[in-house]
Nucleic acid binder design. Structure first.
Lengths: 165, 165
DNA sequence: TCGTTTGTTCTGAACTTACAGAACAAACGA
DNA sequence: TCGTTTGTTCTGTAAGTTCAGAACAAACGA
């Protein structure tokens, strides 16, 4: 019975991954590690999720690159086990940090360059609009920087929010 | 010369779309509308971006569904023109609202259900962990709700942030 | 040393997505 | 009315992604 609930969560997490550009297998592996809250080795994951070993292997590599999963060595077992980051907020922050670095920073840099060049030679370009965009992205950048630097405060702040409904 | 700068921005915006799960053509059309800050009709877009009319048409439809582009009628011209939302922050908020609705809310609902069911029958599932996840998503939900309700305040707040660097 | 266990990377087939061009539909003017 | 302009939807192909299985590599014990 509870197996079905696990599946339910794993599939939901997979769907979440899908809408956020994360490969389905990657998200499913992650979901399983989250919901069972214990280390799994590759073959167990293959068996449980019914996907190939290569797929599991690359998915775990990906998850480690996001700092949301780490290797765990269990005494007396040669196999490598994998466990997910135990703190949900920490997990979220790790993902956001990585995404920002990989997907946001280069774009901000590129737009800053364009903005600089446009100042010299306007032409058909809407310099004002470009500036507005740049300013918005800068603000985003600053906010993210602040949040990542004072994670603890953010979490504390969040915990003070009025409770649901 | 400035044409090249426009291209530069359009490609950057396209890349941004890519990393956030938005189709490249859609993002490029959007980028062009943003950076030139004037209404374009379909054939102009076809000509300028060198993509097919069908592609432009569906891209515009998509952009309208995100509330970031709207039809504009120019007096004395039968054609439909398209212009993007003039305020960058408004644009961002519109996108976030839509994405939350489409991609976040259903998942939160699904996890809430799982959470409820798990309370009744724990089994192999880590109820505590599931609760933690749910709580995090709830917080996110609440934050978003607050932000969307008091958009003006958020913008005001943001404008008070210490300036860059 | 060699065989076994464990994990990673490569390869091609299956599936999915993107998109140009064709077909179609609607609005307008003659 | 019919032809022209404008815009949308359909269809087949091309391009890209995903993933199982095969090949490979490394670590360990005998």
């Amino acid at each position: 019975m509870s197996e079905a609930l696990i599946d339910q969560f794993v599939e939901t997490w997979g769907a979440m991954g899908n809408s956020w550009g994360v490969n389905n297998s990657v998200a499913r592996v992650h979901g399983l590690l989250i919901i069972t809250d214990r280390p799994w080795c590759i073959d167990e994951l293959v068996e449980r999720l019914q996907i190939s070993k290569s797929n599991v292997s690359t998915s775990l590599k990906e998850l480690r690159s996001w700092n949301v999963v780490r290797k765990v060595f269990l005494p007396g077992d040669r196999r490598e086990f994998y466990a997910c980051e135990p703190d949900a907020w920490e997990m979220l922050f790790n993902i956001m940090r990585q995404r920002k670095q990989r997907e946001f920073d280069p774009i901000l840099a590129s737009i800053a360059t364009t903005c600089e060049q446009a100042r010299q030679c306007p032409g058909g370009i809407a310099v004002e609009r470009l500036g507005q965009m740049k300013q918005m992205l800068d603000t985003f950048d600053r906010l993210a920087g602040m949040a990542f630097k004072s994670e603890a405060q953010i979490k504390a702040l969040v915990s003070l929010l009025p409770k649901k409904k």
